[in-house]
């Protein structure tokens, strides 16, 4: 039997996508089949026949997928509408507002028109690319999980139909929450890098305490990112599940607890900024205590609401 280099390359491309225990068997059968088919053509030019036969078998990725019955899509028809909805809302809704806002802040901060355009365009492209990538990853993972679950043979029942008005309202509210988390995240990073506040002596200052960057601000940012991911997953899965609510509670704890602690310790804002801006508010103590309580209260009620919806 004679199989050419091209056949070996084809067989390798197919079997490396199969489960390890099937590889040798499929490879041997495929080699024999290809050789049989080439012989069946009966031409003199063996190499040309080999090219032709492999061409007819088609893309090895597709061929291997026929064996495994794995979906050849990143995001399938079930999730696609939700994916498009989330993507358009965030990209068309939030991104321009964010970019414009940051550009305007640059102008307000005394930057020229060129700087403003640069900041705006930079945000549009940079944040936009990350937003699209993050949403796509969440949906693709969701698709894989669904596919695995689908093969276990869970039957769909009408009980799984979501409530129409509630689902829609939840979808919009969840998207708004995601937008808010992303915005807050961006603002925290922005005030650190751009140092937007200008003190009376002309020095640029961060609004938040710079010392927090060696401590409590990281869990706050991680928690915000987590909340955004859970929010997208919630819209993708169309509603709360108990597990998702668990992740939500975790992300919220990671975000809220350090924030409340920092507020309670009165360490949130940059002391230099406060010293310069005392005229902005009179008594700081009561403001800090109240803010800490409010942050905790918001966190607890959001998580409770997520669980209530999931368990209903």
């Amino acid at each position: 039997m004679s199989t050419g280099v091209l056949t070996e390359r084809y067989v390798h491309e197919v079997v490396r996508r199969l489960p390890a225990d099937q590889r040798d068997d499929v490879a041997q059968e495929l080699r024999a089949t290809i050789a049989d088919t080439i012989d069946g053509r009966g031409g003199d030019d063996h190499q040309a026949a080999e090219r032709e036969v492999l061409g007819e078998l088609g893309d090895p990725v597709r061929y291997a997928a026929q064996y495994t019955e794995r979906p050849l899509v990143l995001i399938g028809p079930d999730l696609y509408p939700a994916y498009v909805r989330v993507l358009t809302t965030l990209v068309a809704g939030v991104l321009p507002v964010l970019s414009l806002g940051l550009a305007l802040l640059e102008v307000a901060d005394g930057g020229g028109l060129g700087d403003a355009v640069r900041v705006g365009a930079g945000t549009l492209i940079g944040v936009g690319a990350q937003l699209v990538a993050a949403i796509t990853v969440v949906f693709a993972v969701n698709e894989r999980i669904r596919y695995r679950r689908g093969t276990t043979g869970d039957r769909w029942t009408p009980d799984e139909l979501p409530d129409v008005p509630q689902q829609d309202k939840g979808g919009v509210a969840a998207l708004a929450a995601v937008a808010w988390n992303v915005l807050l995240f961006a603002l925290i990073v922005w005030q650190h890098t751009a140092e937007p506040y200008r003190a009376d002596d002309g020095e640029h200052l961060e609004v938040l305490n710079p010392d927090l960057w060696s401590g409590w601000l990281w869990p706050v940012l991680a928690g915000l990112a987590g909340l955004a991911v859970v929010g997208v997953a919630r819209v993708a899965g169309q509603g709360w599940t108990v597990r998702l609510a668990g992740w939500y509670a975790l992300a919220h704890a990671v975000f809220t607890l350090p924030l409340a602690w920092v507020l309670y310790r009165q360490e949130l804002f940059n002391p230099d900024f406060l010293a310069d801006a005392t005229t902005l508010w009179e008594s700081q103590e009561s403001v800090y205590g109240g803010a800490a309580l409010i942050v905790l209260a918001i966190g607890v009620t959001s998580v409770a609401k997520a669980y209530r919806t999931a368990l209903r």
């Binding site: 059968e29 024999a32 089949t33 049989d36 088919t37 069946g40 007819e56 078998l57 061929y63 026929q66």
Partner: peptide
């Protein structure tokens, strides 16, 4: 075996591609 079956099917008028 695979290829012979494909030929038999073809002769019987049931055309099917190898990759199927």
């Amino acid at each position: 075996y695979g290829y012979a079956l494909l030929e038999t099917l073809d002769d019987a008028g049931v055309t099917v591609d190898g990759n199927t």
